[in-house]
């Protein structure tokens, strides 16, 4: 077996890796969309006036946040069929990522809502606005910019956690690399390519999030420039 980097092999597997990259991006996008919505539900559970719902909600969030995503994936993938629910690896992966990161996003939402000064609420009360109107026109427009950096960070976070999906057989980038590597018994190029592809996608994304964060801080007058 030839040691060292082989360019011909690299170019041979490149098209396959490129297609798998699209799958990774798709998985990250769909997972993120689900997480955004799930986060809203967890937020709702936190905000309801029923103490028992708050408590249950908090325990669930705490549990999901302190257990590994990998085992959660296995749990959903292997346990649901025992109850007669057979879902494809893709669906299982998306559900699990959505649930896992939904708990994180609910914290982002909560932080953003708490970032809106209380006086805004009091002013709306004084103006006799309804709660819904207050949320829609006063609170949410102010909370949203605060939430953007956190939301962006978790988009990058989900993207970097998609390789875990390969463990249940979702055909994303890492899965393709392992398959190609196993077939040719060369892991150097596939795994290195995966690393490079991740770098070229996530560094610009992270820079963009950082820029957003700066813009938001500037707009709020936290940084003078």
């Amino acid at each position: 077996m030839q040691m060292g980097w082989r360019w011909d092999f690299t170019f041979e597997i490149l098209p396959q890796m490129a297609i798998a990259t699209l799958n990774t991006i798709l998985a990250a996008g769909v997972g993120y969309a689900i997480a955004l919505i799930v986060g809203l539900f967890f937020l709702l559970g936190q905000k309801t006036p029923f103490k028992i719902v708050n408590w249950i909600n908090r325990e669930i969030v705490e549990f999901i946040r302190s257990t590994p995503l990998l085992i959660q994936l296995f749990f959903v993938y292997f346990v649901l069929p025992q109850f007669g629910i057979t879902l494809s690896a893709w669906v299982c992966g998306m559900i699990t990522i959505g649930l896992h990161f939904g708990t994180y996003l609910s914290e982002v939402y909560r932080g953003a809502l708490e970032g809106v000064p209380k006086s805004q609420w009091e002013a709306c009360r004084a103006l006799n606005f309804s709660t819904i109107y207050t949320y829609r026109r006063i609170v949410l427009p102010q909370a949203f910019p605060i939430a953007i950096p956190g939301m962006g960070n978790y988009l990058v976070g989900i993207f970097k956690d998609t390789p875990l999906l390969s463990t249940i057989g979702v055909a994303e980038l890492f899965h393709a690399a392992t398959a190609v590597g196993g077939y040719n018994y060369r892991y150097l190029e596939p795994y290195t390519l995966v690393g490079i592809i991740f770098l070229t996608l996530s560094i610009p994304a992270a820079m963009w999030v950082r820029k957003l964060e700066n813009d938001v801080n500037k707009a709020q007058g936290k940084i003078k420039k």
Partner: peptide, 16 residues
């Protein structure tokens, strides 16, 4: 190390 996946780094360390 922040830009790439932990799993990729792990496999790199072990298999590459």
């Amino acid at each position: 190390f922040r830009g790439t996946s932990l799993l990729v780094q792990l496999f790199w360390a072990y298999y590459v």
